[in-house]
Amino acid sequence: MASHTAEEPNRRDFIVIAAQAFAAVGAAAALWPFIDQMNPDASTQALASTEVDLSPVKPGQAITIVWRGKPVFIRNRMPEEVSTAKAVKIADLKDPSARNDALPESAKATDENRTKAGKENWLVLVGICTHLGCIPKGQSMGDAKGDYGGWFCPCHGSHYDTAGRIRQGPAPRNLEVPPYEFLSATQIKIG
C-alpha cells in the first residue's frame, strides 16, 4: 500500500474531514430536485380544487363534474330523499362509517355526517363504486337508481341509497364524500 508510513493521521485531518463533509452535504442536497420533480407539477396542483356553480341544478337534478380526474356526483335532493336517508338506522348499514374526508373514520354514516349543515339537500360524492371502481348509474333522469333510490352499479349490482351509502351488493364501503366547502349559497369548492 502507500508507503506514507507515519502520516496516517493525515486521513483524519480536520480539514480533510471538513472538506469531505461539505462536499457530501452538497451531493445529498442535489438529490432533492430529482425526487421532487416527480411530485405533481404546478399545472396539476392548479386542478387540485374545482369550483362548481350549483345554480343550474334544480331540486331533483344531479350533475357529474370531474375533480382530480375522478367523477363527482352532485345531487340536489328532494325533501323526501333527505327524510328517507335520515330515517335509516346505522345498525342496518353495511358500512357504518361516514366516509367523509372532512371527518375521522370513526364518524357514523348519518345523513348529517354526509352533508353540510344547513345545506342538507346537497349531496356531493365521489362517483366511483367502492367495489371495483365502475361509475354507478343514477345521475340522469332515466337511470336505474337501484332498490334504495340512490345509485346502482351495473357492473356487479351494488345498490346505494339516497345518501350514497352501500345497502346491498358486493361494494364494501359507502361512496366517498370528498372535502368541499360552500363558498356561497350556490358555489362550492371541491378539494
Binding site: 502520516e7 493525515n10 485531518d13 480539514i15 480533510v16 472538506a19 469531505q20 461539505f22 462536499a23 452538497g26
Partner: peptide, 19 residues
C-alpha cells in the same frame, strides 16, 4: 456553498499531498 467547498477541498488536497 461551492466556493466554501472548493476552498476547503483545496486545503484538504494540499494537506494530503504535503505528506
Amino acid at each position: 456553498y461551492l466556493l466554501i467547498t472548493a476552498v476547503l477541498l483545496y486545503f484538504a488536497k494540499r494537506r494530503v499531498w504535503s505528506n
